[in-house]
Design a binder for these strands. Structure first.
Length: 794
DNA sequence: ATAGGGTTAG
């Protein structure tokens, strides 16, 4: 029998052997990385449990440290080991708290453990503990908890440790409290490079250029890191030249130095410079990573240079960084905004965890290339829609003239409680303009005022345009005068709008004001000015403005300007001069130019020229309905039914269908549509009766229908009845029923108002004492007391 | 006796 002391002794020997073996062979620092799998780890762990070696705090420390640093060991495993340890030392506590923060991203657990740590036996927080805890506070962005930790630091006497002080500084800086951060900095007995970088980084993050410059200028050594920070803050505050200067002065530029400058250019809309620098960076053999590549791609997107973008994409693939989400997003944005929707779609479909911007840029990409349905499908399948998604979709509808859908979506957006941004507002107002939905337009305007939304140039101009095109000149002027900043487009909307509403003198006056204000007129402005002259037949003024374009403003007239002049001259009866002007044009006259001349021939009954021009036009654009109709009208007015039939034949041959006249009228927020001869309206009986009343009253006023323009070879009575069912007459009858005076009856027509309807509207305005506003495809007619604002010239 | 901690930037 062995005595117990011998057993004890041999056990001790065994233990020490084991300890040495295991300690040296497995737990030694240099051999630790050899543990490569959970199996190997389990072997070590079970050996230690079996031998009781686990109770050795030093060995346990190594083990815990190993486990928390190995990705193949789940964190809860480490936690279990921690829980069976009897007396974890400070090192173990620190390790497990750090692991909670870094691996679990649960800083609150670390802070909770700290409380247990404080009351545990045989272990005390040390100077390593506090940087961890302070990082936890940063992760929770809790300055309050940070202050508490700061108190402990001071009480326990660790506040002279430079690591602790640097972390404290960082905490205050991240929480935006630069005063406290600066206090810690200023009161530090020892400052190392990290201290300087930290305080500098704080100012950079706050966007405090002065603070950053102050720190930078006083640094004992302006490291690359610090210079990089300066490039960043100069870039963010628009000081591009200074950023460049700092960059040039860096002795040893690293990847971030280059990258920061690329991004500085990119953020300041200097996309060419950004790309040049990116190329330069490559030429200098600097490594690139996903961040700088994203900047470069974004520059390509802004410049719409798809080729460079694709080259960079290839570079990214070669570098092996193509899987980064930020890069995927940037590429999707690039491809979708450059019209390569298929490439974008592929990336999008393969993409994983793509951000909101990708969804939005796919939607705008689809819309850009006209795939509205795809955009719509994507829009409705999005997990989350933000204002940008809604705005993109609404403006897409508006751009493709799907105005009622734009308005409907705007309403839907309201129901979802999304506050519209300026883009959405602009789109919906423009939709209102086209739908003549004045009520909604006014509502949107009120919404803008109520919510104090800044009316920028675009929004203001859109509002002016809307009011002008709805015939509300006063409201338009009000918007105009209230605008702080005005652009060319603003003046243009005003000039064109006034002219359109018959206020020619005022329109030309505004043009003079515009010149006085120093805003340079452009091609559109002259469309408005010449248009104004045209509306009133101001031939001399028109000639003057036309020649002033080249002489005074250095603007070459385009086809449209010529067309306008031809129209002006032609209408005034200067047919010969008009035709000569066409022949003198430096560019090929377009269909509209000839069309203007044809219209003039019709008006001045120059049938010889009319037929010549008409035939030419039909050849030029065989599928245009208007010219056939005009020409056929010329024949019809002469009773030349044979030629009328021939034109009809040509029309049938080319499948030309006369665009049906269509008038819209808004009543109580609902837009009603009437087609010529269309009697499908639910209130058709009332309308029918009202038409009879109108006919009665007009007869008293001495009205006789102008049937000569009806080019149908039918008898007079039928002609009269067809004439009396023109869409604008149906609309006005409906308006007389449903809109109570003194509200004007507002009608919008797709074609130009015909002569007969114009007469009828004047008579109605007198006989019923109503104000009627008709907007045809050209301009406005304000009927009041039997006369029209166009003075019968249109 | 011993291991471990902090900052910044595109």
């Amino acid at each position: 029998m062995y005595s117990s002391s011998i057993i004890k002794k041999s056990c001790l020997n065994l233990k020490s052997t084991l300890r040495q073996t295991i300690n040296l062979s497995i737990l030694d620092t240099h051999l630790l990385p050899q543990c490569q799998s959970i199996n190997q780890f389990n072997q070590i762990l079970s050996q230690m449990l079996l031998t009781g070696f686990i109770k050795d705090t030093f060995a346990a420390s190594r083990l815990i440290n190993l486990s928390t640093h190995s990705t193949f060991i789940p964190f809860h495993y480490s936690l279990q080991i921690f829980n069976i340890l009897h007396n974890p030392n400070g090192f173990i506590w620190n390790t497990i708290m750090r692991s909670h923060l870094e691996r679990q991203n649960s800083p609150h657990h670390s802070l909770y453990l700290y409380r247990l740590f404080l009351v545990s036996c045989n272990a005390f927080p040390d100077n390593y503990t506090y940087p961890i805890l302070l990082r936890c506070c940063v992760a929770r962005s809790s300055e309050f908890e940070g202050r508490e930790i700061h108190c402990h630091v001071v009480k326990l006497g660790f506040d002279l440790d430079v690591y602790v002080r640097n972390t404290l500084m960082n905490l205050y800086a991240v929480c935006g409290n630069m005063v406290s951060a600066r206090k810690v900095f200023d009161e530090s007995p020892v400052l190392d490079s990290v201290s300087w970088n930290t305080i500098l980084g704080g100012y950079v993050q706050m966007g405090d250029v002065k603070g950053a410059e102050f720190v930078y200028s006083r640094m004992p050594e302006q490291s690359t890191i610090a210079s990089n920070s300066m490039i960043v803050i100069f870039g963010r505050t628009g000081c591009v030249a200074r950023a460049r200067q700092v960059f040039d002065e860096i002795q040893r530029k690293d990847m971030v130095s280059w990258s920061a400058l690329v991004s500085c250019y990119e953020q300041n809309d200097m996309y060419e410079e950004a790309l040049v620098l990116f190329v330069d960076m490559n030429a200098n053999g600097i490594m690139v990573d996903e961040v700088v590549v994203v900047s470069a791609i974004s520059a390509c997107t802004h410049l719409s240079i798809i080729k460079a973008g694709m080259t960079i994409h290839a570079l990214a693939v070669k570098t092996g960084i193509e899987a980064y989400v930020s890069l995927q997003n940037a590429l999707i944005h690039l491809y979708s905004s450059c019209g390569r929707i298929m490439d974008a779609q592929k990336l999008f479909n393969d993409g994983f965890l793509l951000d909101q911007i990708s969804w939005n840029s796919m939607i705008s990409g689809y819309l850009r290339c006209g795939s509205i349905e795809d955009a719509k499908t994507l829009f409705y399948s999005m997990p989350e829609k933000d204002v940008v998604s809604w705005s993109a979709m609404i403006s897409g509808y508006a751009q493709y003239e799907r105005f009622s859908e734009a308005v409907a979506l705007f309403h839907e957006m309201q129901l979802h409680g999304i506050r519209p941004d300026v883009t959405a507002l602009v789109s919906v107002i423009s939709a209102c303009t086209h739908l003549a939905a004045l009520d909604l337009g006014k509502w949107v305007h009120a919404y803008i005022s109520k919510n104090k939304i800044q009316v920028n140039i675009i929004l203001g101009t859109t509002l002016i345009d809307m009011y002008m095109k709805c015939g509300c000149v006063e409201n338009a002027l009000e918007v105009f005068y209230a605008m702080e900043q005005k652009g060319v487009s603003t003046w243009n909307a005003l000039i064109i709008g006034l002219a359109m509403n018959g206020l020619i003198e005022k329109s030309l006056h505004m043009f003079a004001d515009m010149k006085k204000s120093g805003t340079l007129p452009n091609e559109i402005t002259f469309m408005g000015v010449l248009g104004a002259c045209r509306h009133m037949g101001l031939v001399d003024e028109g000639r003057h403005y036309f020649s002033s374009m080249t002489v005074e403003h250095k603007i070459e007239p385009n086809v449209k300007h010529y067309g306008c002049m031809v129209d002006l001259l032609g209408r005034a009866g200067f047919l010969k001069e008009a035709e000569e002007l066409i022949e003198s044009m430096p560019m090929a006259p377009d269909v509209a130019t000839w069309g203007a001349l044809l219209g003039a021939c019709r008006k001045h009954q120059n049938n010889e020229m009319g037929e010549r021009v008409g035939r030419k036009l039909i050849q030029l654009q065989p599928d245009h309905d208007g010219f056939h109709v005009l020409l056929s009208n010329i024949y019809a007015s002469k009773g030349n039914w044979g030629d009328v039939l021939e034109i009809r034949g040509i029309m049938a041959q080319h499948g030309v269908v006369k665009t049906p006249g269509c008038s819209m009228i808004e009543a109580n927020g609902v837009v009603h549509e009437f087609l010529a001869g269309d009697m499908t309206h639910p209130q058709k009986n009332d309308i029918e009766r009202m038409l009879d009343v109108v006919a009665e009253k007009l007869k008293i006023e001495g009205y006789a229908p102008t049937t000569s323009e009806v080019s149908l070879d039918i008898d007079e009575e039928e002609k009269e009845s067809a004439l009396f069912r023109h869409s604008e007459k149906l609309a006005v009858a409906f308006g007389l029923i449903i809109i109570a005076p003194p509200t004007p009856i507002r009608i919008m027509k797709n074609l130009r108002i015909c002569n007969d309807c114009h007469i009828v509207m004047k008579l109605i305005s007198k006989a019923f004492d109503r104000e009627i506003v008709v907007r045809d495809r050209h301009r406005f007619h304000h009927f009041k007391h039997g006369s029209c604002s166009c003075m019968d010239f249109w």
